[in-house]
């Protein structure tokens, strides 16, 4: 580890953001290293394939760098970038298809034929329809309110609420059978 990287590693996110807002690319690079996994992981949990997730995550970090001065530190930097990434991903998907069509078209994967398989969150999310997965991830992963999700996805609020509820019910059922500890692992 060089002297610069060890110096950067000691700085708090808010200090790094302030330096990045002044044009510090090294400092921003440290932020990327710290939070890339969180942003990339969220996008994959929202249903993006790895290549698209990385592409959107890069766009999100670039947008974050350009808007560093707008970051008020009211939440964490990680949460801020995750929200940017989530919105960028929604825009990408909206260019491809309407969510209303997706919600009915996608058949969820059956994960527990014998009801005994241990699951983690990433496995369990595969058991949700695409729109349920999206709504649950936006709500609990990106921290958007249900009203914000409805606005972003251009869906009625009631529809979003029922997608979130149904998605959580499915997750609860799938994760409930996982043995203690096994079902809490996070990997992609």
């Amino acid at each position: 580890m060089t002297a610069t990287s060890s110096r950067l590693a000691r700085l708090h996110d808010t200090e790094l953001v302030a330096m990045a807002a002044a044009g510090g690319r090294r400092e921003f690079g440290e932020l990327v290293r710290r939070h890339a996994a969180s942003v990339r992981g969220l996008l994959r949990r929202m249903g993006a394939d790895p290549a698209l997730a990385d592409d959107v995550a890069q766009d999100a970090f670039i947008q974050a760098f350009e808007r560093c001065a707008d970051f008020r530190g009211e939440g964490t930097f990680s949460a801020w970038v995750r929200r940017i990434a989530a919105r960028l991903y929604i825009k990408r998907r909206q260019k491809e298809a309407r969510w209303t069509e997706l919600s009915e078209a996608e058949e969820p994967v059956t994960l527990m034929p014998d009801g005994a398989r241990s699951l983690d969150l990433d496995d369990a999310l595969k058991g949700l329809s695409e729109i349920e997965r999206m709504c649950v991830s936006l709500c609990h992963g990106a921290g958007l309110t249900q009203a914000e999700i409805a606005d972003a996805l251009k869906l009625p609020l009631g529809t979003v609420k029922s997608h979130v509820k149904r998605g959580l019910d499915k997750l609860r059922a799938q994760l409930a059978v996982a043995p203690t500890g096994q079902g809490r692992r996070a990997h992609v």
Partner: peptide, 24 residues
């Protein structure tokens, strides 16, 4: 569920990803 979402998955190419962002 929120705690599970908060746990970031592990990626072994974080350095390469950061380099790509820096290049862009």
């Amino acid at each position: 569920i929120e705690r599970m979402f908060a746990r970031a998955p592990a990626f072994d190419d974080t350095e390469a990803f950061a380099d790509r962002v820096d290049r862009r």
